[in-house]
Design a protein around this nucleic acid. Structure first.
Length: 476
RNA sequence: GGCCCCAUCGUCUAGCGGUUAGGACAUCGGCCUCUCACGUCGGUAACACGGGUUCAAUUCCCGUUGGGGUCACCA
């Protein structure tokens, strides 16, 4: 069997969204697993909505996710160009081919005429209007603008086996003579995609299930072109938490991130994003957490489910947290730096507090943004004090204890977690106190918050001077 | 509405005729504990419904219901 050639073909009309990333991922995984080729093609034939900015954003997101393409823009390849608007001649050529083969015809009906026909129908029936085939058998070639329409066979059905959905069959009468080429010579999706997939030698088309309906007419096109029909794999839809088609608008409404860029900004690791979307609609036994390599190793079409699912924010965050915890403190330190900077904390990569600080917050963060937040008080001159916490714990009763604690801590040598622990324990015992009597006030004094890593580890990271100063200040 | 697809805990899923229907997230308890987490132990929780086929259906078939997708000179 020849090496698979798969592709991801976004249209640059906005961000790369999480569902699109999933489609790209499944294609990429298959290519990487089989030693095949992953092609990136830009379907920019919608001139109204396509923008260069979107192209840039999509490439950015793909690179960030680490979904590298073997052929496509910036990567080269023998089947370029990889922007559809640069392949217009090719589409014209193939349109002619189809006309000669009797699988397409020129249609001179104007939009106005068609619109009028549709409007002549009773309100209820308008949705069912289909092109009546007016120009189907037309022989003359008037000097008028025309579109190229697909000439569907009468009767019969198109059958194929989908890698995910199984045996599929659609009667030809359920389709219509769709427009292949606009009057301005720019192809529509169903035509451009087929011509490109043929000329790029694509062997497997994996895309969202929303394309299921496009497949039968496309197969007819492959046949008319006398080209090999690729395999198809239609991925179940990733829907919003309430079960609707994903969109930026609904995502915002329901508190989930749809653009891939949002995950980057929120401090997700690319591998975590990949893990979540891979596991969505696909499984490998009981395993939940996968490295990129494991994904490649274990991915297969057999275990891709065929029913749509809903995005689960909490599980997604859990996956994110798991990936964070797999990284070493050093790695995380380097990664969290930009997120600290975003909060105005310029920390030197060599700062001795950095890695220990990361260590203390690692089990408490799901994203790098959360991690940076949890580290805030380590690097700010004065902790940002939560008013409620201060009111509750920095009481008149607590202040003398904090002053005493400051004195105890000031004398600890060396100033390390275990030593601090021992010294404080000894002092508590001598005062007939328990840690719970001073822990929360001290925590607020040191971090400004009522929740934080363990007191002694916080002290050790802060260092003696800062610890003592903060305790004294709070006791004043 | 037509056409197409789908249907196991709240969510993601395992299951591919015979299982105490498994795992994960979430949730609820216990433990750990200076708070919050992490960790750990345990609990609640599902085969949409109705017909068939079969010695036997979550599993196969049909219908109902429900959900989703799609009906452009968008992709």
């Amino acid at each position: 069997m020849t090496r698979p050639r798969v592709r991801f073909a976004p249209s640059p009309t906005g961000y790369l969204h999480i569902g699109g990333a999933r489609t790209a991922l499944f294609n990429w995984l298959w290519a990487r697993k089989t030693g095949g080729t992953f092609i990136l093609r830009v379907e920019d034939t919608d001139q109204e909505r396509s923008t260069d900015e979107s192209v840039r954003v999509i490439f950015d997101s793909m690179r960030w996710l680490g979904l590298d393409w073997d052929e496509g823009p910036h990567a080269g390849g023998d089947c370029g160009p990889y922007f559809q608007m640069q392949r217009l001649d090719l589409y014209r050529e193939y349109a002619e081919k189809l006309i000669r083969a009797g699988a397409a015809y020129r249609c001179y009906c104007t939009r106005e005429e068609l619109e009028a026909q549709r409007n002549a129908l009773p309100e209820k029936k308008r949705a069912h209007w289909v092109y009546p085939g007016t120009c189907r058998e037309r022989r003359d070639e008037p000097d008028l603008p025309y579109v190229v329409r697909q000439k569907l066979p009468r009767g019969g059905a198109v059958a194929y086996t989908d890698l995910v959905c199984g045996a599929m069959s659609t009667p030809c009468d359920a389709m219509q003579d769709q427009v292949l080429m606009r009057s301005n010579g720019v192809p529509l999706y169903n035509f451009g995609a087929v011509v490109d997939d043929v000329t790029m030698g694509v062997t497997l088309v994996a895309r969202g299930k929303d394309h299921l309906i496009n497949t039968p007419p496309q197969i007819l096109l492959y046949r008319a072109l006398d080209a090999d029909v690729p395999q198809f794999a239609h991925l179940p839809m990733m829907l919003t938490p309430t079960g609707e088609k994903m969109s930026k608008r609904l995502g915002d409404q329901q508190g989930i991130d749809v653009p891939v860029g949002a995950y980057r900004e929120k401090g997700w690791l690319p591998d975590a994003v990949l893990n979540y979307i891979a596991r969505f609609g696909w499984s490998a036994g009981d395993q939940e957490i996968f490295s990129r390599e494991e994904l490649i190793e274990k991915f297969d079409w057999n275990h891709v489910g065929n029913h749509d699912g809903r995005y689960d924010k909490k599980k997604a965050l859990w996956v994110s947290a798991e990936h964070l915890r797999k990284r070493t403190d050093d790695e995380l330190a380097a990664m969290v730096l930009p997120f600290l900077a975003k909060r105005g904390l310029t920390v030197d990569a060599a700062d001795a507090r950095l890695v220990p600080a990361v260590h203390t917050v690692k089990p408490r963060a799901s994203t790098l943004v959360e991690m940076a937040d949890a580290m805030d008080y380590y690097f700010r001159d004065e902790p940002v004090v939560d008013a409620k916490a201060a009111e509750k714990f920095l009481t008149a009763d607590a202040k003398p204890k904090l002053a005493a604690l400051a004195d105890v801590v000031a004398a600890v040598e060396p100033f390390a977690e275990a030593e601090i622990h021992n010294a404080v324990e000894a002092w508590l015992a001598s005062q007939s106190l328990e840690i719970k009597h001073v822990a929360q006030p001290a925590r607020v004094a040191l971090t400004g918050r009522s929740a934080s890593p363990g007191l002694y580890e916080v002290m050790a990271v802060l260092g003696r001077d800062v610890t003592v100063a903060r305790l004294r200040k709070a006791s004043a």
